[in-house]
C-alpha cells in the first residue's frame, strides 16, 4: 500500500463511513429504548414491572402472556386447596396468585380482527390506488387536475372530524362493528394517499415500455401486469406500508365504531389495564404482539421500501 491512496470524490472515506455509521447506530439505539422496555416489561412479573427504581435485570416470567391470553378468577384458599396440583406453565403461575384460569381472553379474536381489517383495507387501498393512479397517469381523464385535487382534499382534515356522521351512517346501514365497515372506512382514508403516492411512481415509468409491449403483441392490461407492475413494485411496497401502518394503528374510529365482533387491537389493549388491577406485563405483552406483524411486513418489503421512501429519486 502506498501512502497516498486515491479515492473518488463521491465515495465517503472510511473514517466518514465509520463516524456516520456510529451516529446512525447510536440514534437507532436511543429510539429503540422504549421498544426494548416494552418487550422487557412483557417478561416481568407485575411487582417487578412497577418496582422503583426500575429493574433492568430481572427474572423473566411468562405471567404477562398468561394474563393476556386468559381470564382468571380469584378463589378462596379452601377452594384452591381442594384442586389437584396445577400443571406447570400458566396454570401454576396463575395458581401462585391465588387464582384459577376461567377461560381464554379475547386477545386472539381481536388480533385476528386487526389482521383482517388492516391487511384487507391495505390491499384494497393499494389495489384501487394503483389502477386509479395508472388511469390518471396514462389516459386523458376529463378534469384530471380537479379530481386529483378533490382526492387529496379528503386528507385536508383529520379523519376523526367526520367521526360522528360516519358513526350515524354506519349505525343506520348496519356497518357498525363489522369487518366490512372497518375495511371500507380505512380504505377510504388510505386510498387518497395511495393514489397520490402511486401516481408519482407510475408517472416515472416511461410510457414507451407499455407501447413496446403492446407492439410486441400484448393487450394494455397485459402490458400493465407484465411491464408496469414490476417496475412500480417499489412504489407499491412503500405505499402498502404507509397504508398498513395507518390501518393497523388507527384508534379513534376503532373505539367509536367497534365494540365486539370487529374490535381491533388498539381499543382492546387499554381494556387489559382494567381487568384485575394494573397489569402492565399483560399490556406490554399485548403491545409486543401488536408490533410483530408490522415488523415482519416491513422487513419483508425492506428492499423495496428503502428505495421507495426516496420517492423514486434514485431509481435506475
Amino acid at each position: 500500500m502506498s501512502k497516498t491512496t486515491a479515492h473518488s470524490v463521491v465515495a465517503p472515506t472510511p473514517t466518514a463511513r465509520r463516524v456516520s455509521g456510529a451516529i446512525v447506530i447510536l440514534y437507532a439505539l436511543i429510539t429503540m429504548i422504549p421498544l426494548a422496555w416494552i418487550v422487557m416489561t412483557s417478561f416481568k412479573t407485575p411487582p417487578d414491572s412497577i418496582a422503583y427504581p426500575p429493574k433492568v435485570l430481572f427474572e423473566p416470567s411468562l405471567e404477562g402472556y398468561c394474563n393476556l391470553f386468559t381470564t382468571r378468577s380469584r378463589q378462596t384458599p379452601e377452594y384452591l386447596e381442594s384442586l389437584p396440583a396445577p400443571e406447570p406453565g400458566c396454570d401454576a403461575i396463575v395458581r401462585s396468585r391465588n387464582m384459577v384460569i376461567a377461560g381464554p381472553s379475547n386477545v386472539i379474536p381481536r388480533f385476528t380482527n386487526s389482521i383482517i381489517i388492516a391487511f384487507g383495507s391495505t390491499f384494497l387501498a393499494v389495489f384501487l390506488g394503483t389502477i386509479t393512479a395508472y388511469a390518471f397517469s396514462r389516459f386523458k381523464v376529463p378534469f384530471a387536475d380537479d379530481i386529483l385535487f378533490f382526492i387529496l382534499s379528503t386528507r385536508f382534515m383529520p379523519p376523526i372530524a367526520v367521526a360522528i356522521p360516519i358513526f350515524l351512517m354506519y349505525r343506520a346501514i348496519g356497518l357498525s362493528d363489522t369487518h366490512l365497515g372497518m375495511i371500507l372506512l380505512y380504505t377510504a382514508v388510505n386510498v387518497s394517499l395511495a393514489v397520490w403516492l402511486l401516481k408519482g411512481f407510475i408517472d416515472e415509468i416511461p410510457r414507451e415500455y407499455e407501447e413496446a409491449a403492446m407492439i410486441d403483441g400484448y393487450s394494455r392490461l397485459h402490458a400493465f401486469v407484465k411491464v408496469v407492475l414490476p417496475q412500480a413494485a417499489t412504489g407499491i411496497a412503500a405505499t402498502a406500508i404507509f397504508c398498513l401502518i395507518f390501518a393497523w394503528n388507527e384508534y379513534a374510529f376503532a373505539v367509536l365504531l367497534t365494540s365486539g365482533t370487529a374490535q381491533t387491537m388498539p381499543p382492546f389493549i387499554p381494556f387489559i389495564i382494567g381487568e384485575g388491577g394494573q397489569d402492565w406485563p399483560a399490556v406490554a405483552a399485548a403491545t409486543t404482539l401488536f408490533l410483530i406483524p408490522i415488523f415482519v411486513f416491513t422487513i419483508l418489503l425492506r428492499k423495496h421500501l428503502l428505495r421507495g421512501i426516496t420517492f423514486g429519486a434514485v431509481r435506475k
Binding site: 407501447e211 403492446m214 407492439i215 410486441d216 403483441g217 400484448y218 393487450s219 411491464v227 435506475k316
Partner: peptide
Amino acid sequence: APAARDVAFVFQQYSLYP
C-alpha cells in the same frame, strides 16, 4: 390496437424492459 397489427418497432430511445 397495436397488438392486432403485427408490426415490430425499434424505438428511437431503446426501451428495453429494465
